[in-house]
Design a protein around this nucleic acid. Structure first.
Lengths: 211, 211
DNA sequence: GCTATAACTGACCGTCCGGTCGGTCAGTTA
DNA sequence: TAACTGACCGACCGGACGGTCAGTTATAGC
């Protein structure tokens, strides 16, 4: 793919746009290069002019998706404030980030959770790992400050928080079909109540801090 | 497929065994009928003797997987006891059930969360929905008994609980690679701490009940 | 043993797969 | 103006896809 200093041709851009749509929706194996070409409005041979193989094209899409999602890590790094506010900020920001990058999110999540047949194990683990470590760091800081209960594993707490967002992102369409599940269409409400429950379950109560 | 009163031929059984392995690991699109035949030790044509098409074979696998997972619903229906004990029982039982049926679990979860290209929307939604409704019912009962906070949405609580287990099941292999994540190899520990945090965050405190 | 049927198979089919080849075209540069 | 280059394409390639067919073998029932 072109470096940052070279402008993409219209064809290349169209190919990438079409590919991210198709791969994100249907997965790697169900998408043919003819399909990508047709959706992009170019010939299949033109894809091979820009990308050495189907695998290379997919890898380019994954790289871009990873870059899209890594914006969240920067946000986390810049975050300051009390333990509670940082957590609330993360939970809302994380889910919002997933929602704003649905294609990238779905791609990375699918790769992360797929079985043995994986194309970019290292990249995906890194994306997940970076985000995960940042969350764990917040929990550790909270524990050292006496806000988070000392008997809880910060990594387990991070798993609960991250898992809630990722599951919601994945399951939202299914949940929306069940009766009385209004929050399925309202991410901020889910985030708010989820964080409230988790914080209440994880925090040292004021009495305990004073004692 | 044969009815319950007819015995499967060795070939048919081998085909189903091979197919569930391959489809569960690699997904529908990445698995060819030649691959299934080879893994089953039969000819490809023999698959078509027993199953009208690839789709029919896959549907048979899904039906079986749904039946495997529905055992959990029966367990939930039979459960009695206090709100807390029912929740703890569910959380541990749910994850244990996923662990004991990894192939079926992975298949159903993948179908539930895949994009527009779905083969058994109704079946999968039903499996998920049945389990979900049972959990919501437990939360509702707890709320009516005054154990669960009145300001919480039972469906949202059910989402948090179910989501924690499903995410853990999906992400465990990824998590295991991160530093200091020992619980990734220890489902019971995850279940215990997860329920403890959620319950603490969701329960009416004894003081509030008395007031 | 005979018959009917289920189970099974190698060869085949049309179509589609990822990828290649030889070319054209428009723009840029020397 | 000739040479070069990146973008692009129709036609083609060998192989693989899901599925079919006629024949063979195994099994069950009489």
């Amino acid at each position: 793919m072109k470096s940052a200093f070279q402008r993409q041709s219209p064809g290349e851009a169209a190919i990438l746009d079409a590919a991210v749509q198709l791969f994100s929706t249907n997965g790697y194996d169900a998408v043919s290069m003819r399909e990508v070409a047709s959706a992009a409005g170019v010939s299949k041979a033109n894809i091979y002019h820009h990308f050495a193989s189907k695998e290379t094209l997919y890898r380019a899409i994954l790289d871009q998706s990873a870059a899209d999602l890594s914006g969240l890590v920067e946000t986390l790094a810049a975050s300051t404030g009390s333990f509670e506010s940082r957590l609330a900020e993360f939970a809302a920001g994380h889910l919002q980030h997933l929602d704003r990058n649905p294609l990238a999110s779905r791609l990375i999540i699918r790769e992360a959770f797929s079985g043995d047949n994986q194309r970019s194990r290292i990249l995906v683990d890194q994306v997940f790992g970076d985000i995960f470590e940042r969350i764990v760091a917040i929990f550790r800081a909270g524990q050292q400050a006496g806000s988070l209960r000392a008997d809880l594993d910060p990594a387990l707490c991070a798993t609960l928080l991250m898992g809630a967002d990722v599951f919601f992102f994945q399951a939202r369409d299914v949940l929306a079909q069940f009766p009385d599940v209004e929050f399925a269409c309202h991410s901020p409400r889910f985030s708010r109540e989820m964080v409230e429950v988790l914080l209440r379950g994880m925090m040292n109560s004021p009495m305990e801090v004073r004692a």
